[in-house]
């Protein structure tokens, strides 16, 4: 079955989504008839055991993969129906990604990494610079703007990743295990930062996580197990 809010004005609509992966002759059903709605401005934590399909669901919402069945609609756009080329453009306009391993370009400084998504916009160089400075200030990393990723701590790299995710002011920020590679202290700081982005700047955030502290920061937590969502963790 399913779990979800029922607000028809939700930003994210996942309706009857199923996802099957093929491994040789074997079909692996990762998600089945899944429904989820996320209102604008919500900070949703998506939890569940490894292999439960959390990241798969996040990828479907972010347009990195397509559902085998059902539909994914974000801000009125049927994402699953877009061509690859249009999907890339849609991601650039509407989605900010934050990755577990930060995925920063090692050959670029922090500010150049943050600037990357802006290269896909029509902003001038000076406008891009302003946006980068604002994003870095928002995550508290202005003093590390000229540093390369290898000289940053894990927490700082993830802050840079978050700055890159929000620099275009996307419709939706998708975080895949953002604290998964960090120690407790740094992980808490990242959760705190995401919480602040949601509360103070109104960012809509969906976060896949194993972090037991996440529910305390998120506005809502849903649990995924064997392809199904529930509002309660498994016993």
């Amino acid at each position: 079955m399913n779990e979800s809010g029922t607000d028809n004005g939700a930003l994210v609509h996942v309706d009857g989504v199923g996802k099957v992966f093929h491994r040789g002759s074997e079909d692996i059903h990762v998600l089945t008839d899944l429904h989820l709605q996320v209102p604008a401005g919500e900070f949703l934590a998506l939890m569940g055991p490894s292999g439960s399909g959390k990241t798969t669901l996040l990828n479907l919402i972010g347009g990195l993969d397509r559902p085998t069945e059902g539909s994914v609609t974000i801000a009125g756009e049927s994402v699953h129906q877009l061509s690859d080329r249009r999907l890339a453009g849609w991601r650039a306009r509407h989605i900010g990604f934050v990755f577990q391993l930060y995925n920063l370009m090692p050959t670029l400084t922090t500010e150049r990494n943050v600037e990357l998504p802006l290269l896909l916009t029509h902003l001038s160089k000076s406008e891009r610079k302003k946006h980068v400075a604002a994003a870095l200030a928002m995550v508290g990393l202005s003093h590390r703007a000229g540093h390369y990723p290898r000289t940053l701590s894990g927490g700082e790299q993830q802050r840079a990743g978050i700055a890159r995710g929000i620099v275009t002011d996307p419709t939706l920020l998708l975080c895949d295990e953002p604290t998964g590679d960090l120690d407790r202290k740094a992980g808490d700081e990242i959760l705190k930062l995401l919480h602040a982005l949601n509360r103070e700047h109104g960012k809509t955030i969906i976060m896949v996580t194993h972090d037991p502290h996440a529910p305390a920061r998120a506005a809502r937590t849903v649990y995924l197990n064997k392809g199904q969502l529930s509002s309660e963790p498994l016993a």
Partner: peptide, 15 residues
């Protein structure tokens, strides 16, 4: 591979 995939995720086109 991961760099290229990251760029593609951010919206850079395959072309």
């Amino acid at each position: 591979t991961r760099e290229i995939a990251t760029l593609r995720a951010l919206g850079f086109g395959s072309g």
